[in-house]
Structure formats: structure tokens, C-alpha cells
Design a protein around this nucleic acid. Structure first.
Lengths: 349, 349
DNA sequence: GACTCCTCCTTAATCAATTAAGAGCTTAAT
DNA sequence: ATTAAGCTCTTAATTGATTAAGGAGGAGTC
């Protein structure tokens, strides 16, 4: 059974290919009788309709938005922040009637050309580490691109929050409550899979720009409050999971002197820190204050966190790409908000 | 600035288009010198690389899997069950190095041809109501298709659980605990946006097959236990949200006599029912037992539920489509498991 | 009867690539 | 010297559509 194309139908009926095309896409160009006959024969031959790829080639539009996320897809779908963002982006795509093509990152040794081969009209890049090869591939495509969260690409629209300011607000919150011994747990500073204490080098050389900037916000707030940043232990995690957070929590809470407040750069991590506190029988917030980030999984647990409008950011990214305005390099900085719940309080006396 | 194509580069160098193509896709066919010169000129002219659409047309493969989900995308991304499924599907796609094209359903009056225009190699259809027009469009594409959960399409591979048996297991659990006055809250029976008490007609005429079958499982278990199904109130919800669950909870718990156990067809709904119980000061499980479904949001809340391997199902669906075996119509029925937690207990004496 | 105007369909260019087969030319083997 | 074999590049067919421009024929108008 050879492939059925417009031509097959045309030949069968002794009309031209163009005529058959019109039957599908422009009914007004044809007499009703012929059109009906064409559709009949098409049905009879099992024609699948005008080939979308050929159509796309001819029309010069793909009808899809490419999404590149700086993690494995399985991971992305497990991350509440990513989910919120997807939701916003999907809303924009849906309103415009275009699809959302979620692309896997080139993974391990397998050389897959997903970015090169992606049939899309534009790309949305989210949370890619500095210098990731996929970014270069995206830029090489010469299509509209927006970047969300990181990395900042000069000349391209950027969407995100003021990371240092937001992080500083989180730190300032506990500092103003009177805490002086802080601890920090952060995921996604680097992408070498390492977990453990992170010294100055790993902190400042972090390849995830947004997280690097977040960290600098913590530092600034500490220094402004007269707390020596060099004395603030920072535990770095390879994966953003509750289990990771627990591990970091145990590491930080095992220190002497023990921190009275722990800052984390994701809510999921913060939940893990709460688990660690529970393991050790520490009261939160009486004996330990914990702050999350993103307000993605914080409400139920009563977690103090920084809220960012992930859905709005996603939707704005989508609209920007679909409006064709993505050529103008804008920096859209979205608001954040410190949400104080029941995981923070003044330190024990 | 006109578009740069292979031809542009070929003309510039005075070579044939084929030569330029080889420079990109088959280095062994060319001398190193010429190849280097071609790549140089390409770079100089700002060539974006071989056009993926044209490539796709010529090669006859799209490098993407189409996903059609029976709800708005914004909604899908908010549903823990869907997320789990996506995760599995994305894993399979990722391993194969293909993208995942998430398609919006034709929405309201806007006639968008996303299904017709989707550049994909296969479709995965999830939870579509009976007779939804998008299904016909998918089938018309004559591409490999698998259906997950619903609807069952004769001749096409199907993946899901034994819905009636799973639902019956949930019902049997509370019946065996001694409950006799049950209440049921269900979402996604119909897609007409209606919420409220559902009588026999709306129950049996439900357009979402999986949910219809789930309901029949509840009924069967009741009847086997000698509980008259006609006396079991069923409250139907238009949306799967915690708020909906709370509403259903209030409706059911406001009845006289009050049910001692409430079955729901999603965990999210069950959480809402717990909220309603809390509103009314009812102890769970002392005064009320609640059972969820899917184990997608149940663990933290200590909810008794039916666990289904959503990730596995997603991954299996992906692999089936990508293996090219999707032609053989199989019915892959996945295991379910009753997970008893702390939301169910014998009824009050 | 000549002219114009429709309606309906065809012609042919175009979208941007891939790739089997073949044509020159050089090198190696007999 | 001749033939075969290798390289390197070109030719041309192919993938499956869209659409502006044009032609043929019939109807309407003066």
C-alpha cells in the first residue's frame, strides 16, 4: 500500500493536484460537485489529509513552540516550579492554538539532534546552565528565542525575577528576626552532580546563573546585617528532592554551633530540611527557622518562602514568542513576594 | 535579508546544492578543504542549518510524539495523575531522543487545526471523552496511535488499569470495614460542565468511559455487599480540584442520614472532602472514612487510595509508540493496588 | 454579434532539503 | 600502457504540498 498523496487522488480523478489541494483548503475555488467527488475518493483511498510537514514547509510555519528545560524531562515534570511555569506557557500556546514541543536535552553520550531537528516557530529556554551546548544550538536556529530565569543572553528577551533582591529579602527576614547563625542549602549551583559543602570557589563559579545570583543576594543581606558570610555554611545538592533537603538538613544541623535558621533555594529542599529537623526532634520554628523559595510546595507545610509568579512568567514568555515581539530584547522582571508562614520565628533565647 | 538556504551557499561558492548538503550531513563524501570552506561561508551568511521541516519531509520522520490530553493544558499540568503520566511518557521520549508535542484540544469556537497540522510520528491519546471530535482527527491521520485510560478504540492498543475492579476494591474496602451508608464524589463523568447530584441517567450515560466504568465498579461492590446502589448518593463535579471536593463533601455530609464513608474517583477530590470534614468538625477516620483514587496526592494526607502505576503506563505508552509495535492492537492492563492509610476505619458505633 | 464577466480548473513556480547514480580526474596495480 | 579502483563533486529525481496567474467555456449585456 503505497502512500496516498494529493497526486494519487488527482490521478485517480484525472484532475490536477492543485484542484485536489483546493478541495481541502479552499472550497470556494471549486464546484461543489467536483469537491464532493474528490473528498469521496480521498476517503476511499484512505488519504490522511494534506501532509502537515509539506504544508509546514510550504507555509513557512510550524505551529509549535519549542521548550527547552535545563533538566531531564522526568525531572522537570516532578518539579513544582517547572510545572507552574509549564502551565502558564501551555495556556499561552493553547490560546494561540499552537502546540508545545517539549525537547529533551542531549543526554549523556547519545548525540540526538532534537534541537536541530525541532519543527518549531520559536524557542523558550528555561534554566539552562551557563555555556550549555543546547543554548548554542538554539541560537544557531535563528528563530525567536526567549530565556527564562537563566542564563541571561545579551540581545535576547529575558524573563525572571530579581534573584539577588528576592534572595536578600529571604535572608533579611530571618536576620531581622534576630538570627545570627545561618545555614544555607542550595540545589542547582553546578551541574557536575556533586553534593556537599560548597566553598567560595564553587559558590562563585556556579554555572547556574540564577542560583549564583540568588546566593549573592543571601550574602549581601548577611553582610548588610553584619553577619560574616565566610562563616555561613553552605551545603550544595545535586538534585532538588526532599531527600536531598533532608541530607543537607542533617549536615547543617550537625554543625556546632548549630544554625538557628536555614535558607534554601527551593521549597522542595526546605521540606527536606523540615524532615531533618523532625528527625532530630527540633521544633520549627521554635528552635529552627526554615525559608524556602518559589512558593511551589510551601503552603501545606506552612513554609515561609519567596513567591514568584511562575504561571504568569510562563504565560508572558509564551505570549512574547507568539506575538512576534521576541525580536526586541526586553528584560521582563517579575515581582516576587516574601510570604511569611509558620516556619520562621525569632531564634531561641 | 532573504532567507539563507543550502542553495544560497552553493551559489556563493559555485558548487552544487548537493555538495553543501553533504557538508552538513555526510562529511565523508567531501574533501576536508571544501567542507571547511562551505561551513565557513555558511557561518558567514548566517545559515541556520538544514531546515528541519524540509528535512523532515524528505526523510519522512518528524522526530516527535504527539500527546493529546482530554483537558485544557493548564488543567493537565495541575493534575498530579497527568503529571505522573507525562513523566513516564517523557522518559520514553527522552530515551529515544524525540520530542513530545503537547497539543491543545480544539477549544471553544476557535477552529484550530492542531491535530491536523501536528508534525509528529505517532499519537498518544489520553482520557478523551467518548466521541470527542479530536479522536476522529487523530485516527484520520493514519499514524500509530495508542490510547490511555479512555476511550477504548477497537483495533488500537490500549493502556490502563482494570477500572471496575480497582473501583470495586476501593468500595469493598470500606464495605468490609462495616460501612453501610456510602457517598460518592466523582469528577469527569461528563463534559458538560455540570456539578451536582447525578442520577441514574447521568451516571450510566457518562461520556468518560474510564470514570463510567469506575462507577460501575463501585456499584458492583455495593450490590455484592447487599448495599442498595440506588440509595447511594453520587455528587458529580465538573472540575477536579480541591475546592470541588470540598463542595461535594459539604453536599454529601449535609445529608440525613449522613454517609459514614465517601468514595472519590481522584485524590484531589478526596482532599477536598477532608477539608469539608474539617469544616464540619468531623473526625477522620473516626467519624468519616474517605477513599481517593490514583495515589497521586495522597501520601502526605494519609489518604487511603488506589495506586496505579501512572509513570509506568506513560513510559509503556511511549515505548510502544516508538518501537513501531503500535500496529498490533494490544490491551495492556496494568496492576492497581489498594493502599490503606489513615483515612479509613470502621464506622462509628 | 461582440464584449465583458464569472466560474472552474490547470499550469508551473515554489518551499528546502536528501541521496542514488554518474561523471571526471587521480592514483595504484598488473 | 591499460584497467580498475578511489575520490570528489554534480545531476536530477524525490519528498508533498500551496497558490498566483492564466485559459477555456458559458452566461449576461448592449
Amino acid at each position: 500500500m503505497a502512500r496516498v498523496t494529493l497526486q494519487t487522488i488527482a490521478d485517480r480523478l484525472g484532475v490536477s493536484r492543485a484542484t485536489v489541494s483546493y478541495a481541502f483548503s479552499r472550497p470556494d475555488q471549486l464546484s461543489d460537485g467536483l469537491r464532493r467527488r474528490i473528498l469521496e475518493v480521498a476517503d476511499e483511498l484512505g488519504y490522511a489529509g494534506p501532509n502537515p510537514t509539506a504544508r509546514s514547509l510550504r507555509l513557512g510555519r510550524a505551529g509549535a513552540l519549542g521548550l527547552l528545560f535545563g533538566e531531564t524531562l522526568a525531572y522537570a515534570f516532578a518539579d513544582p516550579y517547572a510545572i507552574g511555569f509549564f502551565q502558564g506557557l501551555a495556556t499561552a500556546a493553547e490560546d494561540a492554538g499552537v502546540g508545545l514541543l517539549i525537547l529533551p536535552l542531549p543526554h549523556g553520550d547519545r548525540r540526538s539532534d532534537t534541537v536541530k531537528d525541532a519543527v518549531v516557530d520559536a524557542f523558550c529556554v528555561v534554566s539552562l546552565p551557563d555555556g550549555h551546548p543546547a543554548l548554542a544550538e538554539v541560537l544557531a536556529r535563528k528563530l525567536p528565542v526567549v530565556v527564562v530565569d537563566e542564563p541571561y543572553v545579551p540581545g535576547r528577551p529575558f524573563l525572571g525575577i530579581d534573584e539577588p533582591a528576592a534572595a536578600a529579602a529571604a535572608a533579611r527576614h530571618v536576620l531581622e528576626l534576630g538570627h545570627r547563625r545561618l545555614g544555607v542549602a542550595m540545589v542547582a549551583l553546578n551541574d557536575d552532580g556533586h553534593s556537599g559543602w560548597a566553598g567560595r570557589d564553587r559558590q562563585e563559579g556556579a554555572v547556574f546563573e540564577a542560583m549564583r545570583r540568588r546566593r549573592s543576594g543571601y550574602q549581601r543581606a548577611c553582610e548588610e546585617a553584619g553577619v560574616d558570610w565566610a562563616g555561613v555554611p553552605l551545603y550544595e545538592l545535586a538534585r532538588n528532592s526532599r531527600e536531598s533537603g533532608r541530607r543537607a538538613g542533617h549536615a547543617l544541623l550537625g554543625l556546632d554551633p548549630r544554625p538557628t535558621a536555614i535558607l534554601t533555594n527551593t521549597d522542595v529542599l526546605a521540606l527536606g530540611v523540615l524532615d531533618a529537623a523532625a528527625d532530630l526532634g527540633l521544633q520549627v520554628p521554635g528552635e529552627l527557622s526554615v525559608v524556602g523559595f518559589s512558593d511551589s510546595a510551601a503552603e501545606e507545610a506552612g513554609l515561609t518562602t519567596i513567591r514568584q509568579a511562575k504561571q504568569e512568567i510562563g504565560e508572558a514568555a509564551g505570549r512574547l514568542l507568539l506575538s512576534g515581539e521576541a525580536a526586541r530584547p526586553e528584560r521582563l522582571i517579575f515581582p516576587y513576594e516574601l510570604v511569611v508562614r509558620s516556619s520562621t520565628a525569632p531564634p531561641p533565647a
